[in-house]
């Protein structure tokens, strides 16, 4: 059985004009010791999905439907108190914007020690040693100094690493990392991903890696879930997805990876480079197109796409939400359209 099983998750937000569905019927699962990537357009609902799992949706957002199975329980139905016991100890999260998760008035060390002692019975000396051990593991220069630093004294990437240390110190069964390396250079990124992957092997930890960087994802995850406008549009094994992306959105995503060798060196005064872009913008959540949500921007759009909503079709041991793959097969029963 999977460690984490998210089924038909629907997340709504409250706005001045009423409630809007954002995450719309998202399903995916994370087996023990596996790493799953959530990728997709900015604003497609990746963070809201991740927040749902750890029970920390921002004010105004709530889970409307669906289930999140973890440890033989449905997290959606748990009370706050029960959820708090799981959070940190069994499921830990690294947030996209580290400054939102770090308390500015406490040192990094005291925040990590607090995280440890919440779930493990250690003396303060032991807790400190453990904290420094982890700060070192995530590549912090002089861990003992970092221990005594306040968040504002650290660079952006150092804050990101402090958060990762705080998440791993509790030895969670599931780690949710929302863009954990987005401001790290590649050498550090490699080091940190190594640490995460070692933990995964050593303790059969499951990993959900939210990332916009397909190159990073390609290296460390087993499966990729691609999101567009609140829905899963493709879910496949990482290797085959990167080699042969199926959904036109995934194809566009891979085509937009910048490639400097395709451009001439810049000259002062000459026009700057123009990268190929996917025209248009994602739809508004309160004004979705009648057919496929990607149809207005899709280079391969045809009649059916503008009138009918595509279900998830099976494709290459995964699924794709696109009529191009309709074939003779039935739509995958994983799929469910949310608000019609």
């Amino acid at each position: 059985m999977a460690l984490l099983d998210v089924r038909k998750l629907v997340v709504c937000v409250r706005g001045p004009q009423g409630t809007t569905t954002i995450v719309d019927g998202v399903s995916f699962s994370v087996p023990e010791e596996s790493a799953v990537a959530l990728v997709g357009e900015s604003g497609s609902g990746k963070s809201l999905t991740a927040f749902s799992v750890i029970g920390l949706l921002p004010p105004g957002a709530r889970i409307d439907r669906g289930s999140i199975q973890f440890d033989n329980r449905d997290l959606v139905t748990l009370r706050d108190r029960e959820m708090r016991r799981i959070r940190g100890a069994r499921i830990a999260m690294v947030f996209q914007e580290p400054s939102t998760a770090l308390n500015p008035v406490y040192t990094i060390g005291s925040q990590i020690v607090e995280a440890v002692r919440l779930h493990r019975d250690l003396s303060s000396k032991e807790a400190r040693a453990l904290a420094e051990h982890w700060l070192g593991k995530v590549g912090m220069p002089s861990p003992s100094r970092a221990f005594g630093s306040y968040p504002h004294e650290l660079s952006g990437g150092m804050k990101q690493r402090a958060l990762l240390a705080m998440a791993l110190v509790a030895q969670p069964a599931l780690l949710i990392a929302d863009e954990p390396t987005s401001s790290l250079d590649r050498t550090l990124e490699a080091q940190i991903l190594d640490v995460v992957m070692q933990e995964r092997e050593a303790r059969k930890m499951g990993v959900v890696l939210v990332s916009h960087d397909l190159a990073t994802v390609a290296e460390v995850t087993d499966r990729v879930v691609v999101m567009y406008a609140g829905q899963v549009v493709e879910e496949r094994a990482t290797e085959s997805l990167v080699r042969a992306p199926a959904h036109p959105y995934t194809q566009a995503l891979i085509a937009s990876i910048p490639n400097p060798s395709a451009h001439a060196a810049r000259k002062l005064g000459a026009p700057g480079p123009r990268l190929p872009v996917l025209g248009g913008a994602p739809p508004r959540f309160d004004d979705l197109p009648p057919g496929c949500r990607f149809a207005p921007r899709c280079p391969r759009v045809f009649d059916r796409c503008t009138t009918e909503r595509p279900p998830l079709y099976p494709h290459d041991e995964g699924t794709v939400r696109c009529f191009l793959y309709a074939g003779a097969d039935e739509a995958s029963d994983e799929d469910e359209r949310g608000a019609a």
Binding site: Q96, E179, D213, L253, S256, P258, L275
Partner: peptide, 17 residues
């Protein structure tokens, strides 16, 4: 750094323009 590559391309083009 927080943008997927398709939005990133759009922003880089904007900076160039």
């Amino acid at each position: 750094s927080a943008l997927d590559v398709s939005v990133q391309a759009q922003i880089l083009n904007l900076l160039s323009e």
